[in-house]
Design a protein around this nucleic acid. Structure first.
Lengths: 138, 138
DNA sequence: CTCTCACTTTACGTTTACGTAAACGTAAGG
DNA sequence: CCTTACGTTTACGTAAACGTAAAGTGAGAG
């Protein structure tokens, strides 16, 4: 076994455009996320090499975007997943960040639920109105 | 009873800065929403006069913002509440809009719930870590 | 060797959602 | 009459999140 050989199987990697296609983003966007510190792919020559770790982070990024978070906010959020090596003061900070975010998410949860109630009521009204006009086909 | 006298009690009105303070916005922002067609206050001379209807719409606007909608998206959403006088083709359009929005909101609901699960797990890990270090005071 | 293709960097452009400054109107108070 | 307070319009400025064009690099095909 040659020195420095990988212990685990060779990890699967992705190019930037593979990631772009998978997540329906442009390479530009993915590079932008790197500029903002959300991704840190290694380089092979000058080319970026992404691993399944970047894949996972991109999934979290997309979820954050669907939730309306800013890129900076998503970065903070991603940092929460990197708890391993933190010291106690940093830990306290992370804990507060996590709890803040939980609070706003619980507000968002209520907002979504209420909006769904509203919209379904509207939907009912419209369907009703169309029914009275006998225009409910299609 | 004089001609043209209001049947109901005189409706309560608000100035732009009253609204601004109540919703923690700037007057600039409220005028911007008017430019974008989200609010249409009547004028008294050159001053804007807002009613409780504008108040209600602003509440919906703020909720939309918390949900990460764009201003244009919020406008479309507000239009859904104006179903009364629509014709059938317009009704069909509204129905589709409402259903589309319901779909994305249900996705958002799942996202919020999953993110809450994630964050609470992180919170648990951090609390645990701090406990082992005996640093859970304060 | 040339061409193509995918990737790279640099840098200016664009949209959204307001901020901010300038200049003015108007009613109330001293 | 002057100031103060609040309102107005007009218009340029700005931060965020990319789009887009220009120009260069490196590997492989013909």
């Amino acid at each position: 076994m040659p020195d420095g050989a990988p212990v685990t199987a060779v990890e699967e990697t992705y190019t930037i455009s593979q990631l772009a296609e998978a997540f329906e983003l442009t390479p530009r966007t993915i590079r932008y996320y790197e500029d903002e510190g959300l991704l840190t792919p290694r380089r092979e020559g000058q080319q970026r090499v992404y691993t399944h770790r970047d894949w996972a982070r991109l999934k979290l990024i997309m979820r954050g975007k669907r939730l309306g978070f800013t890129i900076a906010g998503i970065k903070d959020f991603l940092d929460l997943y990197e708890v391993g090596d933190a010291q106690v003061p940093q830990m306290r900070f992370l804990l507060n960040s996590a709890r803040d975010r939980i609070a706003t998410l619980e507000q968002q949860l209520r907002d979504v639920q209420q909006t769904l109630v509203d919209l379904k009521e509207i939907e009912g009204l419209v369907v009703d109105h169309l029914a009275r006009k006998g225009a409910l086909d299609a």
